[in-house]
Amino acid sequence: MTLMAHKADFKARGRYLLRDVSIAVEPGEVLAILGPNGAGKSTLLKVLAGELSPSGGKVFQNGRALSSISALELAQERAVMPQAASMTFPFTVFDVVALGRAPYRKVSTRQFDQKQVRRAIELADITHLADRAYPALSGGEKQRVHLARALVQLWGMTDTSQRSAASNGDDEQPSVVRFLLLDEPTAGLDVSHQHAVLALARQEAKERGVGVLMILHDFNQVLTYADRVAILSSGEVVEQGSVSDVMTPDLLSSVFKSPIRAIKDPAGGIVLVSQSA
């Protein structure tokens, strides 16, 4: 029960954007993707989301080949938070978030949808914006709207308000593992909202067994919020493994071609800093 790319290649105009990438997102874990600009991170996310089909290799979701799953079924198993989504028509924030319920329109009720939407809006801290027109929001506010939209899609028909009951009794194993893919979820957000978004993603992984994959740029956010990390460079996976194994100053310095040092944090743990010599 994973979302997995197996020896995936992606070629565009004769150039490999991804080469021989094997990666797996396990249920309940947060996998961070790290790498320089143009390393193929977004391409990998698009391949895993089924948006691009790999030119070589295969992608599997919960044991089935991605290409054999219908768009609707896919949408019920994984949600994507894009880097930037445009919308020129003046939908309200509430309505944009409610679009995330579309995959469930045949099985859900309006009351339940609205309950989920209101809860996601609260979690994404956009309650005060709910009635505003989406196109008038700032970049960071729009990001949070899309996070809320991804959340209501991810929750599906699970009643999120009964979380405490679900986490107490572990006999209630979810029948299907869901995945959440986030493309630079912190871009354009202020510091407190960056942490709020990452904490929300982590909470989804820990409390509901969601497999989370996120593209990040900040080393310390990787240290704090990810379980495992894969480092991509020129379309290939340079290294992947647990955060403590991979996030070493030597490896990062060579991949990012910039000196990176680890400093002991007086509050505990280490902090990775980048400093030009």
């Binding site: 768009a71 949408a75 019920q76 894009p82 445009s86 028509f89 995959p103």
Partner: peptide, 13 residues
Amino acid sequence: LLGEAEARHLGVE
């Protein structure tokens, strides 16, 4: 209206 990629993510062929 969200975009073609987003529509696909939300289950539209």
